[in-house]
Design a protein around this nucleic acid. Sequence first.
DNA 1: CGGCGGCTTGATCGGTCTCAAGTACGGTGG
DNA 2: CCACCGTACTTGAGACCGATCAAGCCGCCG
Lengths: 226, 226
Amino acid sequence: MPMPNRTLLARPFENHSRRPASPHSSTATMDIMGVPMSFNRNEEIYGEGEAADYLYKVASGAVRIYKVLNDGRRQIGAFYFAGDMFGFEPGDEHASSAEAIGDMTVLVLKRSTVLALAARNGDVARQLWRITANELDRSQKHSLLLILSAQERVTSFLLEMAGRSCANAELELPMSRQDIADYLGLTIETVSRTLTQLESAGAIGVLAARRITFRNSGTLNRLRPC
Amino acid sequence: MPMPNRTLLARPFENHSRRPASPHSSTATMDIMGVPMSFNRNEEIYGEGEAADYLYKVASGAVRIYKVLNDGRRQIGAFYFAGDMFGFEPGDEHASSAEAIGDMTVLVLKRSTVLALAARNGDVARQLWRITANELDRSQKHSLLLILSAQERVTSFLLEMAGRSCANAELELPMSRQDIADYLGLTIETVSRTLTQLESAGAIGVLAARRITFRNSGTLNRLRPC
DNA sequence: CGGCGGCTTGATCGGTCTCAAGTACGGTGG
DNA sequence: CCACCGTACTTGAGACCGATCAAGCCGCCG
């Protein structure tokens, strides 16, 4: 994994090679605000322990947030796609690291601005709370995933991804097998094997490594105990 | 598990056999408010899917919140002890069930009251957000637990419990081995075996099934990769 | 064409689950 | 006080699932 330039990342509003962009400021709601910023594949957006000065919204592409244990194991805590917000921590520093899965663009908001807005505007405060609550919900679902069998985890993962992408019959996965494995608490080999099993069982089709079709959603749903 | 009377649980402010109590109302902060209510061992406080009309604070005893998969597996998402708040859901209904681990007492707050208070008072709103954010943090740590080895999970669990109880050298566990197992995503046998292993290794002492002493915290910390 | 990264497949190992006894403890009744 | 019981916990033997180690395969780009 490449080592990105953190000083750039820590100050997205400065003019640097990455993306100047026209800065809108002081718009009414959180939705409209934000300075565009681009990242390359596998580039770090922020690191665990860094000051959580900014809040991000995915404009295009996908993001993974993860933690690394001191023995090197990585756990991916969540994936974020276009429209999702991430990086808003209760504390002053990020609890996880964030990386771009492919080339992508985010909108960046200043934490202090958002907090000041929330203090004056109850709607914004409620919106903040809602974002955090949704994260909590997602995290709890993720915990549930991790006690399932490999087949159940992979199935749940596919259905989750399908539910979050607009497409219904065909699924385009932006992330690698390793990312999926680290999200599901499995090895890359087990993920791969399980996908081929599901294909043999007629539940899915693997057109390419990252292109999945759903052939028999009944079979899939029967494999998901949530 | 006994089937408690849900109608009582759903309306804690009505006078019933359980606990009348003198109702304080309209105090300045969330901390002071709350109507006392008692529950017996293994009694349900609320069920998954029920209306989340109340917010709870543990006065004494301990609580487990959990979900049950349709095949019967149970996952405990969190334990709560004296001083902890729980049951506050972003949505209108509870995402998990809650049960008393032993006989216990909670303080009950009305959701609508708290929300109204938050709308007028920025401090209360921030407090609400803080509670949710802490839950998120706890949930993410829980996810991390679930990818560890059995020994690491049990060790992390003991250290977590030790950190949350005032006592430092000796730990009194209120929950059963089954509760621990369902929290850690292990079987009861594996939890039991791992505890005896830790005892043989000189890391802990098992005075009684639910009384643990820490003999060698260095060994314990070496077993915790977080 | 060669090389490399990402993915699949195979063979074996090991940790945890499962099934099955056995033990300790607390309560209840004699 | 002890006998009895039920519940919670421990311990053992074996099976199984997923990890590990190790090749191969595929697609992409130079």
